[in-house]
Design a protein around this nucleic acid. Structure first.
Length: 336
DNA sequence: TGTTCTTAGTCCAAGTCCTC
DNA sequence: GAGGACTTGGACTAAGAACA
């Protein structure tokens, strides 16, 4: 980012920009909270991502561990391929539970069948045969159910994180980067914390005109970022938005914290509901009220409306909905 | 993890519709 | 069915950079 910024500056490209009041008063509570909370937020995020990554890996490991009940048969079956052992396991356990003699052969299905045929030879009465059938049939069913319940190897598609263009740092951040490099050139042993303190002192000592230079640099970097960001959005397909948002939702769940979704600027704007249309129309009446009070009052008014009074908003909504459907169709066709 | 300040994003509060 | 989008603006908070 700094290189990009440096390029913009050294190429002498200047964009006419609005002056910004840098001496705007800042809420002291914000400063106090920021001072205490900013350090380490980036590492924390990185740390989380690491945890997330390891968590996904861990999930794949326990699957083979969930087979303790068939240990003996597994050991006996040549463990060259897992697929074949699984198949054999199912059959050996199904028939091998009762016929413990099958253990001696330990070759799998064929050997167990042989055991079965040997057992059938000494049959004398029909009753005995029936009893045996009944006894044999019961465990078969149970084991079959177990086999069905066994975890199937689920493909775990890993959603790649989209590389989002990085936002430029604030004028202060740009100044600090420059200051840090200068300080490092003068004193290679200087620590970041020390350089930051010195930089902050120097920053506060800067005149308004000097700060304005940094502000202009920021505006230039920001302008470039906005162009890059727009190009980046234009290069994305709806599927990429879908995948990225899936990944972000997953991240939200893991993190237990809301992660904003990626919005497609090319996608058609969703229709406003009748209530939202009403809310927009009456907002001017509540300019003096607080946001929360305004919402409550608007909801109260909406609920007090008669069905015939709600009709105009509902009609507007239907029109907007038709617009949305038409635009959505066009949008889909564009990427079909 | 340490330091700094600014900017941009999120939250609140309501009800309804839409998407996943 | 859960949760996001939509509206509003003030209050609050996270992210942005440097790197050992």
């Amino acid at each position: 980012m700094f290189r990009q910024l440096a390029q913009v500056i050294f190429n002498g490209v200047r964009v006419p920009l609005k002056p910004v009041n840098l001496l705007k008063p800042v809420n002291p509570t914000i400063i106090s909270t920021i001072h205490g909370k900013i350090p380490g937020h980036i590492p924390r995020q990185v740390g989380f991502l690491r945890q997330y990554a390891t968590a996904t890996v861990k999930k794949t490991k326990p699957i083979p561990k969930k087979k303790p009940a068939v240990r003996s048969t597994v050991k006996k079956v040549p463990a060259k391929t897992t697929k074949t052992t699984k198949g054999v396991k199912a059959k050996t356990t199904a028939k091998g539970v009762k016929a413990k003699t099958a253990k001696t052969t330990a070759k799998g299905v064929k050997s167990i069948k042989g055991v079965k045929s040997v057992k059938s030879k000494p049959k004398v009465t029909v009753k005995d045969v029936k009893k045996k059938k009944v006894i044999k049939a019961a465990p078969k069913k149970k084991i079959k159910a177990k086999v069905v319940a066994k975890p199937k190897p689920k493909p775990k598609p890993k959603i790649k994180k989209l590389e989002v263009p990085k936002k430029p740092g604030s004028p202060y951040v740009l100044y600090m980067i420059s200051h840090y490099r200068e300080a490092k050139a003068k004193n290679p042993n200087i620590k970041l914390g020390e350089a930051s303190k010195l930089g902050a002192e120097k920053w506060s000592a800067l005149s308004e005109n000097e700060k304005e230079i940094w502000n202009q640099r920021y505006q230039e970097a920001k302008a470039k970022y906005l162009i890059d960001f727009k190009k980046w959005h234009e290069s994305l397909t709806p599927e990429q938005y879908l995948l990225e948002n899936r990944r972000r939702r997953l991240l939200s769940k893991k993190k237990g914290k809301k992660v904003s979704l990626l919005k497609d600027p090319k996608a058609p704007k969703k229709p406003k509901s009748p209530y939202l249309l009403f809310l927009t129309s009456i907002m001017d009446d509540f300019r003096d009220l607080k946001v929360t009070e305004r919402s409550k009052e608007a909801a109260k008014r909406w609920n007090e409306l008669k069905p015939e009074d709600k009709k105009p908003y509902e009609e507007l909504y239907l029109k907007d909905q038709a617009r949305y459907k038409a635009e959505a169709e066009k949008y889909k066709k564009l990427y079909a």
